[in-house]
Nucleic acid binder design. Sequence first.
RNA 1: GGGGGUAUAGCUCAGUUGGAUAGAGCAACGGCCUUCUAAGCCGUGGGUCGAGGGUUCGAAUCCUUCUACCCCCGCCA
Length: 561
Amino acid sequence: MKQELSALIQQALDALKAQGVLPADISPTIQIDRTRDPSHGDLASNVALTLAKAAGKNPRELAALICQALPEATFVKSTDVAGPGFINFFLSEASSQAVVQRILEQGERFGCSDEGKGRKVQVEFVSANPTGPLHVGHGRGAAVGDSLCRLLAATGWDVSSEFYYNDAGAQISNLALSVQARCKGLGPDDASWPEDGYRGDYIKDVASAYMAGEKIDAEDRHVTGAADADDLDAIRDFSVAYLRREQDLDLKAFDVHFDVYFLESSLYESGAVEQTVDTLIANGHTFEQEGALWLRTTDFGDDKDRVMRKREGGYTYFLPDVAYHQNKWQRGFARVINEQGADHHSTVTRVRAGLQALDAGIPEGWPEYVLHQMVMVMRSGQEVKLSKRAGSYVTLRDLIDEVGRDATRYFLVARGPGSQITFDIDLALSQSNDNPVYYIQYAHARVCSVLRKLEEAGGQWQAADGLAQLDRLGEEHEAALLKQLDKYPEVVANAARNSEPHTVATYLRELAGDFHTYYNAHKVLEDDTALRDARLALSVAVKQVIANGLALLGVSAPESM
RNA sequence: GGGGGUAUAGCUCAGUUGGAUAGAGCAACGGCCUUCUAAGCCGUGGGUCGAGGGUUCGAAUCCUUCUACCCCCGCCA
């Protein structure tokens, strides 16, 4: 619709140029916006404002001239010059109502687009090391990352979700030692408890499962407990598999799925890390100092140079990071989006710098990052500290079990990643109406309820009947709904393009609000069957869009509440 | 000291990429269930958009200088 209007304005401008009213050498980009206030029509353009100076006319006068020069079009009912010089467009009822038909025809595909054109995109998120259950921060990453995947898939991208972790580093030896200590009956307060060991109770569970010879099936590995407290290698393998499985269960309960699990250790095994070092050296971006090998990341915008190979010979985590992203590049992803906690933001410049230094033709802004801020957890008015080592943090599973998946997901994805959020457990537990996810789901359930009511009364409704009567939708509340529904595909496209899933949540809140208002003001199941059919069509369209939108957030759309 | 983030109603947050009179929810107050689910609706009150300067027809939004809070700044990941 915006495109059609834009074309009309272009024609008007051309006509004015031909008449000599406008200088021939101007070529403005024509901007069309949705209006906020219904009295401003449905769509508006500011061309007259942007062109006024070049045209040497005052904006309102110019707007009037453009209006007069606009060709007739069936979908435009009227135009108006308003405010400082906006051109307001009032669409014909038929063209506003047509959105209902599009929704009913396209069903769950409504809102989808082909913007990605089948190109490959990867979203890496969560990427927690297997040293403990997932906490709320991981939950936020999971909610945002998974929603991004759904958005990208809906907009025509070939999406691959990826989970990256380390099963071999210092953290993992630490884990193995902790489990071993538990196997031997030690506790965190004993003198011989490993320094920096993991103190959480879950370590005890890992130990007893290991000693019981349990068989562990994680998504990407399978291990049986050797029940030998002296075999540290066996303990390590078992512990990693056990905690990976725990995380899998957390993610499954959250309805989050990964296509690929990628091991940091594989980068060493394949020689990718060595190759990366060699390339960086060959490209002349490195230097040696005090026995360590450095990469001159300051050449690429970093604020200081970084060590790649330590004096004692091992690599810092920075190097596998670069090797890993080179690997992603080689896999042919047009876009890579890394969803991480904001505490990792310093790696952004570093990794990009490393990739530039490879001189492999990787774009400067690649990969993209979505960084989410901390999640503060409150209980009884007090902050619960998130500390893996202390083992006293609130796990994602706790929240899902207590609050429910839908509410947890919605809460974690409904706000911009940049905003710090406070997860108030008492509030979430209190079953109060504070959580807007119910508000949205309720709108969906209400439509289902109306349909059930119709059926109980022996009535029937078919899409075709409703679509034939769309011109009966003349109420103000109906106009507002139609306009809101029409906006949906744009919301999805923008959310996917800008990696902002929370805008979908905001949109759904508005749509649900519009529907509740409408529902209270007008009866759907009218005796007048033509009117009834039209309103049912509109209601079913609302139900469809809510279901589509909630699906993008990974939240269910219940038929009844 | 350097880098990043944030600052909008009492509280939690939106704000359509620079548009018209800045919006929701919660909290407060007042109304609406013999009629499709009241997890709902309607109404009232509540704001120097952190502060100053700049850019222009027009700024919560862009630039700049401050202030406050959070995160990062290791040859840890």
